[in-house]
Simulated scan of single mutants.
Amino acid sequence: MINKIGKITVYVNDQEQAKAFWLNKIGFVLKAEQPMGPNATWLEVGPSDSEFTTLVLYSKAAMQQQNPSAVAHPSVLFSTTDIDAAYEGMKHNGVEVGDLMKMPYGSMFTFKDQDGNEYLLREDK
């Protein structure tokens, strides 16, 4: 049976811009980067060296050639233990963030990557 979520693919317009966004603005680490033929690179980033789950930053153009119906943006929810620090850190790094919402069931905010894809960060305590 399934025991972990391994990888989530995000289709990006420019892999180098996406890598810079996730590493420099979000604070992720580079987990893997290797060529996949003449027009594609396998590129994975994650929250830390020890985290198993990664984002695969895959070329949208390459996937549109391979399987056009697969190109969609997943709904990805990230977790943090300090929502206030994460919010201020992303704003400081120039990330486009939505309003910080503090609800009875949890605190969260949305943010956008370099391609305008939207994600949700919520606090887990």
Rank of each mutant, 00 (worst) to 15 (best):
M1V: 15
I2G: 05
N3W: 00
N3M: 00
K4F: 12
G6C: 00
K7R: 06
I8D: 01
I8F: 00
T9W: 10
T9G: 10
T9C: 12
Y11P: 01
D14Q: 13
Q15W: 06
Q17Y: 11
A18K: 00
K19L: 06
K19F: 01
K19S: 08
K19V: 04
A20G: 11
A20T: 14
F21S: 11
F21I: 15
N24S: 05
K25L: 08
I26P: 07
G27A: 05
V29E: 06
L30I: 05
L30E: 15
L30A: 03
K31A: 03
Q34N: 03
P35M: 00
P35F: 00
P35R: 03
P38D: 09
L43Y: 06
L43E: 07
L43P: 05
V45W: 06
G46L: 03
G46R: 04
S48V: 09
D49Q: 14
S50Q: 09
E51K: 02
E51Y: 04
F52H: 03
F52Y: 08
L55S: 03
L57T: 02
L57S: 07
Q64G: 08
Q66K: 09
Q66R: 14
P68V: 11
S69E: 12
A70Q: 14
A70C: 13
A72Y: 05
P74V: 14
S75V: 12
V76T: 12
L77P: 10
L77M: 15
T80M: 02
T81R: 01
D82V: 13
I83E: 00
D84L: 15
Y87W: 07
E88I: 07
E88D: 01
G89H: 14
M90S: 03
K91M: 06
H92Q: 08
H92D: 12
N93I: 07
V95E: 11
G98E: 02
L100R: 11
L100W: 11
K102H: 10
S107E: 09
F109T: 03
F109K: 12
T110A: 08
K112G: 04
D113Y: 02
E118Y: 08
L121F: 10
L121V: 13
E123T: 08
K125Q: 08
